[in-house]
Design a protein around this nucleic acid. Structure first.
Lengths: 114, 114
DNA sequence: TCCATATTTCAACGATTATCGAAATGTTGG
DNA sequence: CCAACATTTCGATAATCGTTGAAATATGGA
C-alpha cells in the first residue's frame, strides 16, 4: 500500500461518524447495506452521509453499487487488511515479528445447492 | 480501546509528517530517539515537530522522556496493537475470524551477562 | 555565571473539514 | 408522464489543522 493511500484511509477512519459508518458496514458483512439504512441506524442527514461515504470510497474502504432505488455500500475488507498490514509492516526494526491481522468474511457460496 | 481514543489515534496517524514520524519511531524500536534526530531525519522544523509529537502523545502512540538536553520519543507498541485490534474486532459480523496483529519489540535483556 | 544547545510556547495565517439547507438527479410504480 | 422515494450536488458557514516566525524555557559545560 502506498503511503498516500494509507494517509487517506486513516483520515477516512479518523472521524466519529465515519468510524461508526465503517464499523457498521464491517458488521453488515460483504453484502453491505443501503445508504438509507445506514442513515437511519446512525441518525445522520443523507447529504452528510454522502459526504462521508465519499471519503471512505476515495480511500478504497467501501464500494457502492446501485440496487433499485437504493445504493448499497459495502466495506472492502481487503483494503482494511492492507491498511493494518501497512501500519505493522515496519514494526520491530523492519523484522516481521507478527503476522498482520486479516479479516476474510465468510465466503458466499457460489450457488446454493438444490 | 474506547472509540474516542481510537479516533484520536487514527487522526494522529492520518497526516503525512506524523505518519513518517511514527513509523520512524517504530523502526527505532522501544528505546526511541531524540526529537532533534527525528527533526533532522525528516527535515522538519523543531516547533512543527513538537506540534506533531503532541498529537501522537495525546493519542498514546508515543511517550517522551528527558535525557540530558534531549527529549527522547518512543513509539508505544501496545497502543498501536490496541488500535489495530479495535479496527478488526468487529470484523465478520462480530465473530472473531482472525487474530489481531501484534508487535512485541524484542525484549531488552534485563542485564547483559558479564 | 554566561553561553550554547535542545526543545517548547505563543500568536498568526491560509487551508481543510464537517455540517446544514435547498435544489437537483435518478428510479420505480400508477 | 407524474408523483413519491432515495440519494447526490451545490453553496455557505463555523471549527479545526499544519506551518511559520519570534520568543521563552530548560539543561550542561566553560
Amino acid at each position: 500500500m502506498e503511503k498516500k493511500i494509507a494517509v487517506t484511509a486513516l483520515a477516512a477512519l479518523a472521524q466519529d461518524n465515519r468510524l461508526d459508518v465503517f464499523r457498521l458496514l464491517v458488521q453488515a458483512g460483504p453484502e453491505g447495506m443501503p445508504a438509507g439504512a445506514v442513515a437511519e441506524a446512525l441518525d445522520l442527514a443523507p447529504n452528510t452521509l454522502t459526504f462521508h461515504f465519499d471519503r471512505l470510497r476515495t480511500a478504497g474502504l467501501v464500494t457502492a453499487r446501485r440496487e433499485g432505488r437504493s445504493i448499497i455500500y459495502a466495506a472492502q475488507f481487503a483494503q482494511m487488511n492492507a491498511l493494518v498490514a501497512f501500519l505493522t509492516e515496519n514494526c520491530c526494526g523492519g523484522v516481521l515479528c507478527a503476522p498482520a491481522a486479516s479479516c476474510k468474511p465468510a465466503r458466499k457460496r457460489a450457488k446454493e445447492p438444490a
